[in-house]
Design a protein around this nucleic acid. Structure first.
Lengths: 158, 158
DNA sequence: CTCCCGAATCTCAGTAGTAAGAAGTACAGT
DNA sequence: ACTGTACTTCTTACTACTGAGATTCGGGAG
């Protein structure tokens, strides 16, 4: 048989899942600690960052980019709106939809903290050199794409 | 200067962090969905799994292996104990400490679902072949180790 | 036009944890 | 024996979300 997926293949997959989880947890802790200094969660930072780099986006677009639930995006934008870092704007073409956009204060904040956050991440990821990072990016990109696609086709039933 | 860490180095680090997060989220979703069929969270499954493969462990040892807070391990073992999958046992040498151990029902459950879970993970991770998985394991292991170590030394202050 | 299906957002109850600190216990130094 | 420090678990209050359903609206079919 061509694909004899035995116990060693399985244990290799399990090992990969474990080291993926641990690496993610360890790096996330750095990111979280850095961002917590500004009283932001990672999800809140991600919203500021995506609005900074892409400009105003519909709530649904933000939701898909940062991977939270529909309830979650409402909750998060509510919080950022209370702090006057983000504002909702009506969408002229579709009255169901709203844009999220940075306020001047939000833009000033993300402009200030984003470079320092990038530096903190660079330090956290300094265990690999540039070549190794590129290899890792390639492998993880394919891993993630495949897994996301597999989830999609499984739910739609083939 | 030897290490000119410019904008491209930083954006490479950022890209790595993004693909690491997305790969983790996508794979975790598979693991979560598979385990949810048995009314278990990933953390609960991790406890059953570690007790199955290592035998009875002190709560603190379980906590360090599955990376939750001290309050979290109490909460999780409480839940598993209510379902009679795990039991607490006194530690004769140290009366502060307790062992967590699988009940017969808990062992039967994990013995049944672990192989299927391993298969589900293997399918989720099938985007990489065996060689690539080994490369990824190596890179992620070093990445995670370094980041975890950096967090430790940062908190102890050098 | 009206009906209806689907999409975009919001509401609200519930949940899986975390953080900080309490209580009990071990152990080393005096 | 006594004291102080550190460790182990547990308690309590809180948080950052999730998931299901409600609401509002767009757009095509009849």
């Amino acid at each position: 048989m061509a694909h004899q997926t035995g116990r060693d293949e399985q244990s290799l997959a399990l090992k990969l899942w474990v080291v993926l989880s641990r690496a993610h947890t360890a790096v996330e802790e750095h990111a979280r600690a850095d961002i917590a200094r500004h009283e932001l969660t990672l999800a809140e930072f991600a919203i500021l960052e995506v609005l900074f780099h892409r400009g105003p986006l519909l709530l649904g677009e933000v939701q898909r980019r940062i991977l939270v639930s529909s309830g979650g995006i409402t909750y998060l934008v509510d919080r950022l709106e209370k702090r006057e870092l983000v504002e909702r704007r009506e969408c002229p073409e579709d009255r169901r939809a709203r844009y999220a956009a940075l306020t001047p204060a939000g833009e000033a904040l993300i402009r200030e903290i984003f470079p320092r956050h990038a530096e903190a991440l660079e330090r956290a990821l300094a265990g690999l050199d540039a070549d190794e990072k590129e290899q890792a990016v390639d492998l993880l990109r394919r891993l993630g794409r495949y897994a996301a696609e597999a989830a999609r086709t499984a739910s739609t039933g083939c």
